[in-house]
Simulated assay, not measured.
Amino acid sequence: MKMPKITCPNCAADLEVPDAPIHTCDYCGTAIQVSAMIGSGLTPTTRDREQLVIKDHFIIKCQYNQAQVKNLLVDWVKKIPGAPQDFEEAANISQNDLKFYPMWVGEYAATSDYVGIDNWPQFSRPAFDRPGWYEVVTYYKREESGHIIREYQKPLMAVDVQNLPIYLRDYVVTTTGKVYFDIQHVKKLGGVILDSIYKLEEAKTNLRQQVMGSQTAEMHKEVVQITRRTDDIQEKGVYYIHFPLYEIKFEYRGKLHDALVDGSNGRIVYVKVPVSVEFRAKSIAAIGGFGGIGALLIILGTLSVIGIIFGIGGGVGLIIIALMILGLNLRSKASEKQK
């Protein structure tokens, strides 16, 4: 499929753009509203420029290069219970790609007034043997009203869910360190810029719906049914942000594994490696030791009153520890995930 050609409204470079409503210029880093340029009649002039670009385009800078990320991953794997300790020598990293993922972040001030119905208790038949207690509690419907004021910062991942790594879908991206987009920073690290699947107005609509949903959830803390409401949602700012993520694939003892590393802070978003044979052997020995001693304490504990209190309690505790170790041993792989 032939890609459409446009001229960058900022640097006048000729670009072939992919099938996306917003594209970041490969030369100057301007976020171009492609959907506004193609077939709209607008031209990259000073008068039309504000309608063709995203002014609030930011980047969260990557603080680690590929070699540093590899070291972070190796050190982290060594800390995972059951992970192989020869990972550094035996693992072969076949892919270590830096991608700058797009997201929208909206800041809103929301004020809502509501009227709703809630269930209120009605007490009857006081308990004669327990002062202040009642034997029967029934509920009746009662109208309530309220006023909710909240401020929100809502994120929206701007990548198709099928192309978004599953462990990134609930990952909280820290955006406090954002700066205006710098294409040279991306090029220096050899990163790839992904484009948003949402137009600016589509992103605003989605973010506003998130705010409305949060306000609704606040109302439902007070009432079970909302009968009337008025909402005043003030948009304080909507930002287009790219954040760095390393997508890593590696081979360990003939099997492929993957990992995700946040390039802005070095956090391991996700990694999964096989459980080592050494760990399985040691854990089996520990299971036998804790389980055997625990069973013995329970048996001895039944022989005296003091033993019932201390022996059985200690025995049960050791058996619980043995079961926890067994759970670690039965895993096919050791993994780590952060939100």
Rank of each mutant, 00 (worst) to 15 (best):
I22T: 15
C28Q: 14
G39V: 05
S40P: 11
S40V: 00
T45R: 07
T46M: 13
Q51E: 01
F58G: 09
Q63R: 15
Q68W: 06
V69W: 06
L73A: 14
I80P: 00
E89M: 04
A90I: 02
Y114G: 08
Q122P: 03
Q122S: 11
V136W: 09
V137R: 15
E143N: 06
I148K: 00
R150G: 13
A158P: 09
D160E: 13
V161P: 11
N163G: 03
I166K: 10
Y171V: 00
Y180W: 09
I183A: 09
I183D: 13
V186A: 07
V186P: 02
G190H: 03
L194W: 13
M212S: 07
Q215P: 00
Q225L: 09
T230I: 14
Y239H: 09
Y246C: 00
L256F: 03
V261Y: 03
V269H: 07
Y270P: 08
V271R: 12
F279E: 01
F279L: 02
F279W: 04
K282R: 00
G292M: 02
I293Q: 02
G294K: 00
I298D: 09
I298C: 04
G301H: 03
V305Q: 01
I309S: 14
G311Y: 01
L318I: 00
I320V: 12
M324F: 15
G327R: 13
K339E: 02
